[in-house]
Nucleic acid binder design. Structure first.
Length: 464
RNA sequence: GGCCUGAUGGCGGAGUGGUGACGCAGCGGACUGCAAAUCCGUGCACCCGAGUUCGAUUCUCGGUCAGGCCUCCA
């Protein structure tokens, strides 16, 4: 079975075939770095990381070029920098490094490229120049605007007609626009804001053109897959596509458009204006990144995902179970072909069905557990399959001890080992009172003891 | 107002024109000094109405509800 992906433009699943199997290209819209990102920002990060991992398995580790950009020129960044009385680099550097650190904690591989808008200005100016020359864009009062009537395909991606948009336009139309739907490619900077030279006057790029130029510079057009949150379909991706097609005289800009659904926070939409933000940066202080990753993948990427404490707890419980199996299978050496078994990746090949893939993963884990218990000889193959699938999902990548005991520092570990030894001695002497007293002491340390045939093991309990 | 999604058991969540996955939680049992972990057992959920059909949760139409986009919120 081959990879099938839902294409927003076609509004159905299509068989995926890259332009060049030796260089599969994927681009995902990244953050605007003016603050810590809330958890919803990381859904596309994790979802497209799974796709990145899957493509690497299918086409080869070095055959996939994945670019995730960073917008580091923007009104909000300017505002933040002004507020703090620092240059925009101070703001963008701070939040970009936090973002990258959080991304790593969530188990996302670094993208092949992480282009920044400020490092792409030449390419942006060049692309705008081509658009002006080709008659798709025009300069007016220091701005350069894209002429939406110049591209007949405008509206095809988001499925809206230009007339509808004009009729429904609620925003006051700037006087220098020829058509209400025209959007800015270049605009003058306000005093004190970052500024770059251009043939149309000093200024800075509009948001949409940044992405198109970064794609062209890092991956080349057209690309195979363009991803992002579903809210970006219009206007951002519609505009990108219009620019990209007009600037390259190509018929397509991206062969596939993929969009992940929204993350909801309880009943309310998660939004900064409502103030119910959950910053991933804060969440990661108390919840393992892997549990957040699991929770983010527990619904199909196109479905809306309700973000709740209970969901996180369920994610931790599932991982506890899986790591428990791996711990018991510690002595089993995983070997096999190393290839992904067809029926096991099948859910992922079907438009990245991560919940179904997780079901397969749990099934493999249960089979492995039973095989280990019975000493069956298919244990190593099962372990191999389990780890291979987990590798595509980007989970179960650490030693079970790290998962269960990762929250303990060395001093605590020594203390715990001492208590366990004392308790073993008491149990050996059938002094149950003493044994239970020690267990209570361990419980107070947030440690849970598990007696097994080969001695007691322990783990850090969840921070409830 | 326009366009577009979705509605599955206590919770999460796949999938399918015909004996309703799976996980979490719960309950009963085994095991255990007692626990934990593990194992065995246990759940008769597919928004409403009409239609198509031998048969619909799955297809069609209508409705209700929820959500998204239409404004540089992922």
């Amino acid at each position: 079975m081959s990879l099938r992906l839902y294409d927003t433009m076609a509004r159905k699943k299509r068989d995926f075939a890259p332009h060049d199997p030796r260089r599969v290209t994927m681009y995902v819209c990244g953050p605007t770095v003016y603050n810590y990102s809330h958890i919803g920002n990381f859904r596309p990060v994790v979802v497209f990381d799974v796709l990145f991992r899957l493509l690497r398995r299918l086409y080869g580790e070095d055959a996939v070029a994945y670019a995730a950009n960073v917008t580091d020129v923007d009104d909000k960044i300017n505002a933040k920098a002004a507020e703090e009385g620092v240059g925009i680099e101070a703001v963008t550097d701070r939040y970009l490094s936090a973002y990258n650190a959080d991304m790593a904690t969530l188990g996302a591989l670094p993208p092949t490229f992480q282009p920044r808008a400020t490092e792409t200005i030449d390419a942006i100016v060049g692309m705008i120049g081509r658009l002006v020359q080709g008659g798709s864009a025009y300069a007016a009062e220091g701005h350069v605007l894209f002429d939406t009537t110049s591209y007949a395909g405008y509206g095809e991606l988001s499925g809206r007609a230009l007339e509808d948009m004009i009729a429904g336009a609620r925003v006051e139309v700037a006087p220098y626009k020829r058509n209400p739907a025209d959007f800015v490619l270049w605009k003058p900077s306000k005093p004190g804001e970052p500024v770059w030279e251009s043939p149309w006057g000093a200024g800075r790029p509009g948001w949409h053109i940044e992405c198109s130029a970064m794609i062209e510079q890092t991956l080349g057009l057209p690309i195979d897959i363009h991803g992002g949150g579903i809210d970006l379909v219009f206007p951002h991706h519609e505009n990108e596509r219009a620019q990209g097609v007009c600037a390259t005289h190509d018929h397509e800009y991206s062969a596939f458009w993929m969009h992940n659904g929204f993350l909801n926070f309880g009943d309310e939409k998660m939004s900064k204006s409502l103030g119910n933000v959950a910053l991933a940066h804060d969440l990661l202080k108390s919840v393992p990144g892997e549990a957040i990753r699991w929770a983010l993948l527990s619904a199909h990427y196109r479905q809306p995902l309700a973000w709740t404490d209970e969901g996180l707890t369920q994610a931790r419980n599932s991982l506890d179970h899986l790591y428990g199996v791996l711990g018991r299978a510690r002595g089993v050496e995983a070997h096999g072909s190393g290839a992904l078994a067809e029926d096991q990746v099948e859910p992922l090949l079907d438009d990245l069905n991560t919940p179904a893939a997780m079901t397969v993963l749990k099934k493999l884990a249960n089979d492995l557990d039973a095989a280990v218990r019975k000493g069956a000889d298919n244990a190593s193959a099962l372990k191999q399959d389990l780890l291979a699938l987990a590798g595509v999902l980007g989970v179960l990548q650490v030693d079970p001890d790290v998962w269960f005991q990762g929250g303990a520092d060395e001093g605590l570990k020594v203390r715990i080992d001492g208590l366990i030894a004392a308790r073993d001695a008491a149990r050996g002497a059938k002094d149950w009172g003493e044994a239970d007293r020690i267990r209570a002491e361990l419980t107070a340390l947030n440690v849970e003891v598990m007696d097994g045939p080969s001695g007691a093991t322990w783990r850090i309990k969840e921070q409830a």
